[in-house]
């Protein structure tokens, strides 16, 4: 046996307990989502079930107003991502390419906002949105998500922008390009991958946010997915767990797949700029 094979077996053996615990909730999710309602509370509890009931998903869709919440989540996440990116791209470019007075202070301010969690400010934010008449308005979430994500997006974009050599733009100027031309024809094409990756992570962050959505959205037709699913569980005498799990599967699996596919970029971005 080669040493790499031995090592691989050893490593997988060490990691396997952790992996079991990580994968356990996914198992619970799937097994519950497809079992008949009558088998939810069998005694003794068991993993097994008599039949795959895929209808659970369609029933759930109607009963929990999944479609409405899905649209709300999509609207909020996409809008917040667009707003955050439109504001972050120029800021990240300035941070990456210019020296200017107050740059250090701005960097510190970004770090501070990065650390400020919504929960500490939630009461103040609620009062602010009340004053603006934006409670029960999805746009309140768009604004807050954009603001809370901006430190991350600027950070991430800046670290990628820094890896695009400055002399490419200088070469373009020497070639007779204006600042705008070099930005559009040299810099932006090279920055597209970074912007896509950053956008997707911002989308996922917004998609998963709970506290602000729970607070700002007071009526059920405005709920985003996490709140909608939580509402199926909290304060109910009887919870339709098979529907809840079906909804969780639909709400998490697509995101998890995209995330898994992109996680290496997150690691790279953090290695490039965040931690250093």
């Amino acid at each position: 046996m080669t040493s790499k094979t031995t090592r691989s077996i050893l490593y997988w053996a060490i990691l396997s307990p952790l992996m079991v615990v990580i994968l356990f909730p996914f198992g619970v999710m799937f097994v519950t989502a497809v079992r008949p309602r009558a088998e939810l509370f069998t005694y003794p509890p068991t993993w097994g079930f008599s039949e795959f009931r895929w209808e659970n998903f369609s029933e759930m869709w109607v009963k929990t107003n999944f479609g409405g919440a899905l649209l709300n989540s999509l609207y909020v996440s996409i809008s917040a991502t667009v707003v955050a990116l439109v504001l972050s791209i120029p800021a990240a470019y300035a941070m990456s390419r210019y020296r200017f007075a107050g740059k250090g202070a701005y960097r510190t301010f970004l770090l501070m906002t990065q650390m400020m969690s919504p929960i500490v400010l939630v009461l103040g934010l609620f009062r602010l949105m009340m004053a603006l008449g934006l409670v029960n308005d999805l746009n309140s979430l768009v604004l807050t998500y954009a603001a809370f994500n901006m430190a991350f997006t600027i950070w991430m974009l800046q670290s990628y922008f820094n890896s695009i050599p400055r002399d490419l733009e200088e070469a373009a100027w020497m070639d007779g390009a204006s600042h705008l031309t070099s930005l559009v024809r040299i810099f932006l094409p090279l920055a597209v991958p970074a912007m896509v990756v950053t956008a997707i992570f911002t989308f996922i962050n917004s998609w998963n946010e709970f506290v602000l959505a729970l607070t700002m959205m007071r009526s059920s037709e405005d709920f985003t997915l996490p709140v909608q699913i939580y509402a199926q569980v909290a304060g109910r005498y009887q919870v339709e767990w098979h529907h809840v799990m079906a909804a969780t599967v639909l709400a998490t699996v697509p995101v998890a797949i995209v995330f898994s596919w992109l996680q290496r970029y997150l690691i790279r971005g953090m290695a490039l700029g965040a931690v250093k």
């Binding site: 909730p25 999710m29 996922i204 998609w207 939580y230 569980v233 809840v244 995330f259 996680q263």
Partner: peptide, 16 residues
Amino acid sequence: IIMLPWAISLTMTAVV
């Protein structure tokens, strides 16, 4: 696999 919990919102994880 190790990164998977990061992809799921805390709310969903807690519900499950």
